[in-house]
Structures are given as C-alpha cells and as structure tokens.
C-alpha cells in the first residue's frame, strides 16, 4: 500500500524532464523571497539558539564560556534539580497529551455527526467555533475566575465544593476542560466538512439497510473519515505538546508543580533563573522529541491510510 503512495510521489517529481540550470534558477526564484524571511527570522535564530545551548549563557551578560554538550548531558544527571524538573515537566506534558488528544478528536467527531443530523447547523457551528478566535489571556482570565472553589460561578451553579484548580486530579480536569472548550471548534469544522464531503449514498445506503445511528457512526462514518481524523490527531498532538498558557495562567503549574509544562519549565530556567544555556538545551530536546512523535504518528497513519 505504502509503495503505491510512494510511487505516486516519485512520479510527480520525475515526470518532468530534468531542467537546465537557468530554468532551475528561475524556479528557485519562487522560493527565494520566503527563504530570505526564513533565513533572517527563523533559520539564523535557530542556529544561534543551538550555539547558546552549547554554552553557559546568562541573558543579562551573555556567554559564560563553552561547555560543549555539557548542558545536554546535565539533563541526564539524575541528582540535578533542574534535570529532575525537566523530566517531571515532560511527563506532565505527555500526560496532558494523552488525556487531551482523545477528547479533542472524539468530542468534535460526535458533535460533528450530531450536527450533520440536526437542523440549525450554522448556529451550532458558530457557537462551537467561537471560542477558537479568543486570545489565551482572555480565555484564562475568564476561566480562572469561573473555576474558583468557594465563590466561582461553576461551583455556585452546581452547589458543589470542587477544588477545580487547587487539588489533583481536578487541576488536570480543569485544564483539559478549558483546552477542549478553547480549541475544539477548529477540529469540529474540519471533521464536519469531511462528513459533508462523503458520498451521500454511503450514509443513505446505511440508513436504507436499517443501520441505526450508532452503527452507522461506528462502521461507516469513522472508517470513511480516517484520513481526516489522522490530520486532526497530528495537529492536536502538536498543539497539546506545546501546552503553556493554560497551566501558566490557571494553576501557575501547581499544585506542587504537577501541572508544570515543559514550556513553562524552559521559560523559568531561561528567564527566572537566568540559565539560558540549559533552557535552550531543554527546548531543543523537546523539539527533537516532538519531531519524533509527529514522525512516528505520520508514518503509521500513512501506512494505514493507504
């Protein structure tokens, strides 16, 4: 299956006869403007960042000498407090990825199907998409107050005493809730569009066969939407991996650092303790891990898709 896909890609690039170098330069000109921007504002900073990760680097005074791979090796020193915290934060972030991604894919999938079967589609679509346009600061400002234990509107409404932001597992539940609220709409729109583009006949045929809603959903809809769901899955994984604003503004990483994300840990190292060298090393380790996860996900899904 995969070879078919691969052949298709290779056909695409080799079909055109090899061009002479003048023509190649002409083609290159299309990419050049973007490459200039990339080089200046991303490429160079990344290279610079990589050199910072090989030094002692204090943002106040600059370099404090080269240490080679010392900052990276130090991340594997179990007695070092910063490295302990880094791995703890990484585990926290992974936990968040595992608990948020299923909801970020599953809930929109169910809602999209409901929307497909219901009237007033555009009203619902707007309501569900609306929070996605808000900035992190406004989202967290509202929720940090809605979720207060004693006087927060949510506990007030339910007459409950749930320590939403104060104790585990509630702190993770709250962060997950807010994340789903904030960013689910995007996935919902993609999945909904996917459903509307399915051949009408497949869904109708199912209903003629007398298949119930749930069976149609499980045995027709989900398999047909596999490629779209895989896109949504990868985008959600990358998004969740970059978790920062939700715990930073809701719980401050607490209780007792249990919701401390990698991004926040890197931020604290670099700008709180002025250890920019080790902070950058952490950032690159995180980037490599993220790349590996996306690569594996993309690979397996492509295999299945074919």
């Amino acid at each position: 299956m995969r070879t078919a896909a691969a052949r298709q890609t290779s056909l695409r690039t080799t079909e055109r006869p090899r061009e002479n170098w003048v023509s190649q330069i002409g083609s290159f000109l299309f990419v050049l403007p973007y490459l200039v921007a990339f080089g200046f504002f991303l490429g160079y900073p990344i290279v610079f960042g990589a050199t910072v990760s090989l030094q002692h680097w204090n943002p106040m005074i600059g370099s404090g000498g080269w240490v080679g791979l010392g900052q990276y090796l130090n991340l594997f020193n179990p007695s070092d407090l910063a490295s302990q915290q880094f791995w703890q934060a990484l585990l926290n972030t992974l936990l968040f990825v595992f608990i948020s991604v299923p909801f970020l894919v599953g809930i929109p999938l169910i809602l999209a199907y409901c929307m497909y079967l219901s009237p007033w589609k555009s009203v619902f679509r707007s309501a569900f998409f609306f929070p996605s346009i808000l900035s992190a600061t406004s989202v967290m400002a509202v929720w940090s107050w809605m979720l207060q234990t004693e006087g927060g509107p949510i506990n007030h409404f339910f007459g409950s005493q749930i320590p939403w932001l104060v104790r585990q597992p509630w702190a993770w539940i709250s962060i997950d809730l807010v994340t789903v609220w904030w960013s689910m709409g995007f996935n919902l729109i993609i999945i909904y569009a996917g459903i509307t583009q399915l051949p009408q006949s497949t869904l109708d045929a199912a209903s003629i066969d007398g298949a119930g809603i749930i069976r149609t959903f499980r045995s027709i809809l989900v398999p047909q939407l596999k490629s779209i769901l895989s896109v949504v899955l990868i985008l959600s994984t990358i998004g969740s991996f970059n978790l920062f604003a939700q715990p930073f503004l809701l719980t401050g990483g607490g209780p007792n650092n249990s919701t401390m994300s990698v991004s926040q840990e890197i931020y604290n190292q670099g700008f709180g303790l002025n250890h920019m060298g080790s902070a950058t090393a952490m950032a690159f380790v995180m980037g490599i891990l993220l790349a590996a996860v996306s690569f594996v996900q993309y690979g397996t899904l492509r295999e299945r898709r074919g």
């Binding site: 160079y44 900073p45 960042g49 990358i238 995180m286 993220l290 790349a291």
Partner: peptide, 23 residues
C-alpha cells in the same frame, strides 16, 4: 529546503526569542 522547513516547525519559540531579539 522542504525538510528544513518541516524541522523548523518543531523548534519551540522560547529557544529563538533571545536570538531574534538580538538580531
């Protein structure tokens, strides 16, 4: 170039903040 671009997607912004600022 294509691989470079894809790889750059994985670098967290925090790693480039200071270099970008200096530039």
């Amino acid at each position: 170039i294509l691989y470079l671009l894809i790889a750059s997607l994985m670098v967290p912004f925090i790693a480039v903040l200071i270099p970008l600022y200096l530039e």
